[in-house]
Amino acid sequence: MKILLAVKRVVDYNIKVRIKPDGSNVDIDGVKMGINPFDENAIEEALRLKEQGVATEIVAVSLGTSANQDVLRHSLAMGVDRAILLETDADLQPLRVAKLLKAIVTREQPDLIILGKQAIDDDAGQTGQMLAALLNYPQGTFASTLEVNVNEVKVTREVDGGTETIALALPAVITADLRLNDPRFVKLPNLMMARKKPIETINASELGIDLAPSLKLLQVNEPAARKVGIKVGSVKELLEKLRTHEGILV
């Protein structure tokens, strides 16, 4: 079984992003970047399926500029077999990403495609579902457990108020939740070896897909902060404030 992974390069999750002085966009020049955390769960799951003898080949693809080689090297260091960079400097929105990934799926013919459930930069959470739609494949989103049987994958999904289990015919698209697994740490020797592995580069413009965004960014702002509150000295004072100032817990 062949697994395709899509990995995104995003601002490191520990960094508080700021706005450019001219207010046109967020300022990510020189900011520490890394692999989208949910995509690491996707990689880990693929590696486990290979270790169980279920998967035979794992291919990771990333979309963006040559800077994206770092997340592909990270993927290779974790244990992915092959890496593809779909090179473009376009501002990619989820439907365009899904269309580009579809082109790779058509070429690679994977049995299972695993993506993170959302990227922590735009927080859209759409690409996996869109890719499944474009391929007319079934989808298992927000997955917390996966179980592959012969021609089927059983997926337990994290939904509001509990979990849901569904069965999908292969090929299928899965989006990984954080609970799917704990991604392994990358060992330094593996990282060194990953530097020597080839990354296949495809120019996105060769795929004939219109990448012009249909969502225009007009403005970015910092959200209004909540009004500054007060510190109270005791439980008694807390209750007093809530009762007299807020009229609750009376």
Binding site: D122, D123, L217, Q219, E222
Partner: peptide, 10 residues
């Protein structure tokens, strides 16, 4: 976007 740290108008 960015976990509610930034608001965008699109």
């Amino acid at each position: 976007i960015y976990a509610g740290n930034i608001l965008t108008t699109i």
